[in-house]
Design a protein around this nucleic acid. Structure first.
Lengths: 235, 235
DNA sequence: GTCAAATTAAATATCGTTTTTTTATGCCAT
DNA sequence: ATGGCATAAAAAAACGATATTTAATTTGAC
């Protein structure tokens, strides 16, 4: 059965070791995060079963795993739905992200060794570079910018050892990305974030916990204004 | 098929509306939280399938839902396990709980109306009462104390509107309870918490956000010392 | 004509078997 | 003995058919 192996891009030479559940899970996850599956839309088992060429319980289990990150909902005897969106929800996500990411930065600064510092410098450099190249040809570079932006934020907090904190934060980060993608018709960097990144970078490198926390909070909060300007459809 | 309906206590007259998945999920969840299922122990599908008299995919889906709260783990092609425990993990849970519950109290104090306040007063009264009655006959009252303690904490933050915050906090709270139950041979209240509860109560009622936050943090953190004294088996 | 009950259709939930993978056992050569 | 290899046993994953439940439609009474 090569339906799935063909569907998911598998660049490596070896055949994928993932289970069918994981394949379906990963595929649906991407579609939801990309906004290709509309919020609150129904996820019919039979439909997905045929689309992916797998059994119904495989689909159900894949959907069940999406419950972990809150990307789908399920209720009683009436199936699965793509997680809904609302301004209120987005505000709450942002508030939680500020709380968690601020704390993660503090811990990272406290525990971070040379290794962490160089990872962070490298990530900042990569992000900085693309932010310089971007103006004018946004369309071609947004995808790469998104990746490097994530890597920058990840590197920053990679010396934080609290797995619960990192886990919760990642869930929230992914939801943020989803909201941005859903609300964006033309994908482009929502605002000039370069200066913000540089300021955070300097604060972290100088091991200024208070400043790093403050800048991180401001940085994340700014996305609310952007989202509200785009008038995200309320539920 | 009444195997499950008979197993779970169903006091109401109407037949249970829960799905089989939810029944198995709830049952396993309780066993894990109570420490009846040993940390890291394997959860064999076939075994559970027979025990509950359900199909294998029902079991798998129930186990998948336990992934949401991190009560089980799963890896590649080698099944499900009960979530492991460690001192490090417990410390992280406690730290996260302090962070989230402190924030939740602040928001609750800010937004709380009369309704919230009376709910909180009532919950405090109920907890206070059992804490007075307890000394001497701990064994008979711990279960009820646990319930009222939870209700007290829940009522306190019930004016907080951030669903993500409440959701994450509840997961952490449940894990805390699990750790206490696992580490306890004779179930008894770990220490004199009465004064702490009263202090928190007064701070909240006086709408003193800073004090309420501080006391909440201290209150939750104290459990680490208790746990370390009990020398929880490391992984 | 409207509402409600009954019927039909659609979709979810559940089951038990089959396939695939992993782990344990035993054999042989070194 | 020991280490590697083939084989057997066990377990997980996957499948598709069946049973239940919910939603939609029709029918009938007032």
């Amino acid at each position: 059965m090569m339906t799935l192996a063909g569907a998911g891009l598998n660049l490596g030479a070896k055949t994928s070791v993932k289970t069918a559940i994981e394949e379906v899970y990963a595929s649906l996850r991407q579609e939801i995060l990309n906004g290709e599956l509309a919020p609150q839309s129904r996820l019919r088992i039979e439909e997905l079963r045929q689309r992916y060429g797998v059994g119904s319980s495989t689909v159900r289990e894949a959907l069940s795993r999406l419950l972990v990150e809150n990307l789908v909902t399920t209720e009683g005897q009436r199936g699965f739905h793509v997680a809904p969106v609302s301004i209120k929800d987005f505000r709450e996500i942002v508030e939680m992200r500020t709380l968690l990411e601020a704390r993660a930065v503090r811990e990272s600064i406290q525990h971070g060794d040379d290794d962490w510092e160089s990872r962070f410098v490298a990530a900042h450099h990569r992000l900085s570079k693309i932010e310089t190249e971007m103006p004018g040809r946004e369309k071609a570079t947004v995808d790469e910018w998104e990746i490097r932006n994530r890597e920058f934020h990840n590197a920053m907090i990679s010396a934080c050892t609290n797995l619960w904190l990192l886990n919760f934060r990642e869930i929230l980060y992914n939801h943020s990305v989803r909201y941005l993608r859903i609300s964006l018709t033309e994908r482009t960097i929502p605002r000039d974030v370069r200066a913000e990144h540089d300021a955070i970078f300097n604060a972290v490198i100088n091991r200024d916990q208070d400043l790093a926390e403050k800048l991180t909070i401001d940085h994340i909060r700014k996305s609310v204004a952007v989202m509200e300007a785009r008038k995200l459809g309320e539920t």
